[in-house]
Every structure is written in structure tokens, then in C-alpha cells.
Design a protein around this nucleic acid. Structure first.
Lengths: 239, 239
DNA sequence: CGGAATCCGGATGGATACTG
DNA sequence: CAGTATCCATCCGGATTCCG
């Protein structure tokens, strides 16, 4: 951002790159675009970013007038929000995602990228934002194969006002069991393979009452990029 | 790109960021999108990038299958070309440029970003690609005020097969004189102010035969971002 | 010219510990 | 929880050199 650290070019791409093309910054912006406002929420969507660097990036984004930072009404900490200029960066991020969906699918689903907690976190957020919550408590259990034992199991607890992610059995009765290799869950989530196809050939598995299995199709909304990407699944039926 | 240096996320934005959101990479890709194929051409559009880093970025882009590198038919050196995947990155770069044009105009035209040679290089390339060349030799002289003496003057020499940029008087008769503060030339180039408005109020100046001054409007094609940006000039008439 | 290799000081990022 | 402070590893920038 300073004279010496910038690219020294009037090119519009260059000045945007000075802000956006810094390490971790696109992912911080993505978290904010997805509705994260608290420091802890942002952290959850960039778990491998060091907290020191996140604090610095937020500071830089604030100085670039991409975000605002205000004292949280609820006592301590701050609330981070995109400014109109920050919201306008969404098309940049979106094009990045669309490109990867079309040209880099194999990279997306490389084993080291299959972060199970992040997946559950995204699913939960998407479910909450799109379909809304249910009046009676529902518990959906996920078992992600191909993941170390300590990160394999999740319980999504649908309450009337929020959805909790539990990494240990909360003790409630489970209404629906979802299981499959994390790779396949991610592939379905991103639209690389169809949900019905994955269920039919057993890459994904649902257990529970017929009504719950049917309702799963309604509330399990796919990632933004499953629909934003113009291309169809690579191998619709046989993978 | 390696396991440890990546973001470790299946998010499509993240895997694209691993490739595109590295220092200088967006500008290298921009040069390639604009038609640069030789090492020296790319260098000219990123003059402040170190040659060592450029070589490394080209290597990284080749491994990511964004570009190909082939022995030049003309003897020595290599030719770098975007793959289809690389060309598909253009919308990402374009959105970055569009965003800056809408939200960061003051940053674009900061004095330290007003690189005169790059401006002449872009103008030349755009003229050559869009309008084509002229049968008889034409010489257009640019004087950019607000620039150190050694970088102030340029002669665009239109030949039948190419356009040369001279930084010293090539000795030919000049057909058209263009002068103005570099800031205003850039502002016109990027569509921040209108060409006619700048000529009327004297921020830009044309000297030469009426016919040549009239023809200037035809061949002086503005930057891609002057037209791609949806917004109108900020102050159409009075600046 | 068209790069690649090396060296070095400074900037940046990562991990962890610490604090209100 | 919401960040700071600190230390160390890595990366970047610039210069120089070398080679074909």
C-alpha cells in the first residue's frame, strides 16, 4: 500500500491487486461476503491463518475502506462489516470461484484441501441462511469417511433460532444419518456430482425415516458455486 | 502450491487465490492477456518486477498449466502463451479492473502510479491491435508534463507493419503533437474524463494539421477499462 | 537478447505465548 | 473471546553474474 510496496502502475488491475491479491485476503473477504462479522467467525472460515496475520489484514482492509470496524454493542470485541466498496468486490471473488470450478476441479478436491470442519461450517451457514430454521429440534448426524477419527463425526442440531455444530455427541436422538467419504460430500456440495447420483450409487448414504430423507433434499442447499458455475457435472452418472 | 504453502481449503476461491493472488502474478497474466508472448514484452509491462521473480512466476504458471512455454521458432528465447485455462482467467482480471475503476479512481491516478513509458506502451499496443496500421509513415509526438525530463517525450512512429515507440527524436517530421499533464492523459486513457472535454479546457492539447487532429480521435482508442467500466466519467465537463 | 543462478538485506508470514 | 507481542522461517527485491 505504501509507495515502495505498491506496483507503481495506474493499471486498474494493479491497484486492485495491491489490496486483494495479498496472502489470505481473498479468503477473509469471502468470509465477510458470506456474512461473518465477528473476529471469531472470520477465523473459523480461515482456520489455518495465523491470528496475528488476520488482525493485520483486517486493519489493512479497514484502512483501504473495504471494511468498517465498530465496537460490538454486545460488550467486547468488534463488528466487521463490508463497506459498499467491499461488497462490490464480490464479483471478483465470484469469478475466481467460477474459474476454479471450470478449470481446477481436481485441485479443489485434493485430499489436503478437504477440511471437514469448514465443510460443516459452510453447510450449516447455507442451511440457516437459505431455508430457515425448523420449529422442532432436529438432529442430523454426519460421518465423513477418509478423515481422522477425531474430526469424522458432526451433529448438526437445528434449533428454532440457530443451528449448532457439535463435534461430540450432544445426546439428543438423531433424526437423520448422513455418511460418505468427505471427498464425495464435497463433490456433491460443489456440484461436481449430483446428489441423487451419489445417493444411488452409494457414494453418499442417508439413514432415517423416509420423511427425513426426503426433507434432506430441501434443506441441504448446495454451495453458491455449485449453481454459479455454468458447467455441468463432469461425469453425471458414473463418476 | 505445495501442501504446506496452500490454503488447505476446497473452496474454489481459495484454489484460484493460490495461483492468482501471488505478488505480481495478476500483472503478469494481464500482460499475457494483452498479447505479450516474449519474456522481454512481459518485462516491459511490469518494469518494476525483478527478472528473477518474473522467471519464477512464469515457471509456476507453467506448472499450474496456465501458460505454455515453447522454444521460439525465431532462434533463441521462448514464447509464452496462455492455455485455454489461462485465457479463462481474463474475467477475473477484468472484474478487478472494473472494481478499481468504480471505487479506486483516486488511487489509480496517484502520482507514483503514473508510469509514462507503460502508458505509451499500452497506447501503442491498443492502437496497433484495434485500428490497424497506416500505409504511409506517421509520427506522433507526445509530451507528458509532470514527468522528469528524461521520460517526458515520446515519438510514436507508425509504419506499415508496426508502431515503434522512440524515447529520442527519430528525426522524422512530426505529423501531430500531443501534450498535456501525464495525469490528464491517463485520466482520458481510462475514461475518467472525456477526450473532447479535456481538449476543450486545455488539459490536453493537439497541434498539427486539422486532418491529423481529426484522425487522432479515430486511432486513439481508449483502454479496455474506459469502456468496460459501467460508470460515467465523474465530472464530464469541468473536472 | 533471453533468460537462469546467486547472494544478501529487508519485508512478510507462521507459530506460539501472552493479555485484558 | 479478541486480539498483541514476539521470534523465527520464508519470500521478495535488487544487483550482479553467467551462459547460449
Amino acid at each position: 500500500m505504501t509507495t515502495s510496496s505498491g506496483y507503481g502502475q495506474y493499471c486498474p488491475i494493479a491497484v486492485t491487486a495491491e489490496i486483494v491479491a495479498e496472502r489470505w485476503t481473498p479468503l477473509v473477504l469471502r468470509a465477510l461476503c458470506m456474512g461473518a462479522t465477528r473476529y471469531s467467525e472470520i477465523r473459523e472460515s480461515v482456520p489455518r491463518m495465523s491470528t496475528a496475520l488476520l488482525a493485520r489484514r483486517l486493519d489493512e482492509l479497514e484502512h483501504a475502506q473495504i471494511i468498517t470496524r465498530e465496537k460490538a454493542a454486545s460488550g467486547h470485541g468488534h463488528v466487521y462489516r463490508l463497506t459498499p466498496a467491499g461488497e462490490a468486490l464480490f464479483p471478483v471473488l465470484e469469478q475466481m470461484g467460477v474459474w476454479a470450478q471450470q478449470w481446477l476441479r481436481h485441485e479443489i478436491t485434493r485430499p489436503e484441501n478437504l477440511n471437514p470442519y469448514l465443510l460443516m461450517w459452510e453447510i450449516r451457514r447455507h442451511v440457516r441462511d437459505s431455508q430457515g430454521l425448523q420449529d422442532d429440534r432436529k438432529v442430523v448426524y454426519f460421518r465423513l469417511d477418509g478423515v481422522t477419527a477425531s474430526k469424522r463425526q458432526y451433529w448438526l442440531v437445528f434449533e428454532s433460532d440457530d443451528i449448532d455444530i457439535c463435534t461430540r455427541d450432544p445426546g439428543f436422538d438423531v433424526d437423520l444419518w448422513v455418511s460418505g467419504h468427505i471427498r464425495h460430500v464435497v463433490e456433491v456440495w460443489l456440484g461436481h456430482i449430483g446428489l441423487e447420483a451419489a445417493l444411488e450409487d452409494g457414494r453418499l448414504h442417508l439413514d432415517g425415516p423416509t420423511a427425513e430423507r426426503r426433507r434432506f433434499r430441501d434443506w441441504f442447499v448446495l454451495s453458491h458455486f455449485a449453481t454459479a458455475s455454468g458447467s455441468a457435472p463432469e461425469s453425471p452418472a458414473s463418476g
